[in-house]
């Protein structure tokens, strides 16, 4: 078995353990490349059965339009159950990154929204596509990561996790976040997308797009809700990660295919998270967000 085969087998193993030992699992589907790989692995883990859990998308109403179209197409094609949750308080207050800032926008839509959706579904296991190579506090997290009834992560007191013997036991109200891609790197993900021909949102591939400069990032104008200081210009860009469009920076790139992306990655000198505004709010911000219940 080669490296990708082993990663795949390990991830399938994790899916099966979590499902066999939980009551109400759910897969957090955020539409990005990691979610696409996660979903592909979930299908493999239970084939010929369908994945025995619904997908949950915590929407913010600020995702790229192409992401939503892609999400709806994939779910329909695969015949899967999709739960879309939008924090009703955010909807009522019209929370957005321009008036309320990226930190509050992310906390209210994503962190609080996720907690609401998990509570409403009484889910005891939630699969997520996080990888340890993404960020320093993620590098510290277990594959089966325990959360209190308040969804809190206690990084100073994680359960020991030996071999492949995962502890899935929780009291009522408590839950486990399960990360089948923990040991994958960004490059592994793209190589696997290439090998398995997994569909991903077209925004990952270079194209001429309307962009403006904002907070040091190259932001794509996805709709007319973004206040513009100067008129947008057209550039050949793509995205390394996807999120809320006003908070996600594009990179200049000519990579139009997965294999060109893999080539570009090998030569990359910056990390994928550089294009994410929310990770740079404060140093250590990811850990704090995770403690509050963020994925």
């Amino acid at each position: 078995m080669n490296h990708l085969d082993t990663l795949e087998a390990d991830s399938i193993d994790i899916f099966r353990e979590a499902v066999a030992e939980s009551e109400r699992p759910v897969l957090l589907y955020s539409i990005g490349k990691d979610s696409s790989v996660l979903l592909h692995l979930a299908r493999k883990a239970f084939y010929p059965s369908k994945p025995p859990f619904p997908l949950l998308h915590v929407d913010t109403t600020w995702k790229f339009r192409e992401m939503i179209a892609f999400r709806d197409r994939i779910v329909a094609e695969l015949g899967l159950e999709l739960i879309v949750h939008r924090n009703p308080e955010c909807v009522a207050l019209g929370i957005n990154p321009f008036d309320h800032g990226s930190a509050r926008h992310t906390d209210l839509w994503k962190t609080q929204g996720l907690r609401q959706a998990l509570d409403a579904g009484r889910f005891d296991v939630a699969f997520g596509g996080a990888r340890r190579d993404e960020e320093a506090s993620r590098a510290k997290e277990r594959v089966f990561s325990f959360r209190t009834a308040q969804h809190r992560w206690d990084p100073k007191n994680q359960r020991p996790e030996l071999w492949r013997l995962y502890n899935t036991r929780v009291a009522p109200g408590e839950s486990i976040r399960v990360f089948p891609l923990s040991n994958w790197t960004e490059l592994d993900v793209w190589r696997y997308v290439e090998r398995e021909r997994i569909p991903v949102v077209p925004l990952y591939f270079a194209a001429q797009r309307q962009v403006v400069d904002r907070d040091g990032l190259l932001i794509m104008v996805d709709d007319d809700r973004m206040p513009l200081v100067s008129p947008p210009r057209t550039e050949l860009v793509r995205f390394r990660t996807l999120g809320c469009y006003p908070l996600t920076g594009a990179v200049r790139s000519e990579a139009r295919t997965v294999s060109e992306i893999v080539e570009e990655m090998r030569a990359a000198t910056t990390s994928e998270r550089q294009g994410r505004l929310i990770d740079h709010d404060q140093s250590g911000s990811m850990e704090r967000k995770k403690q509050e219940g963020y994925f």
Partner: peptide
């Protein structure tokens, strides 16, 4: 990578 580790200058948990 943990805030507590940086504050105390020690390693608390395993990093991969």
């Amino acid at each position: 990578g943990l805030a507590a580790e940086r504050e105390q200058g020690i390693t608390i948990d395993v990093a991969y």
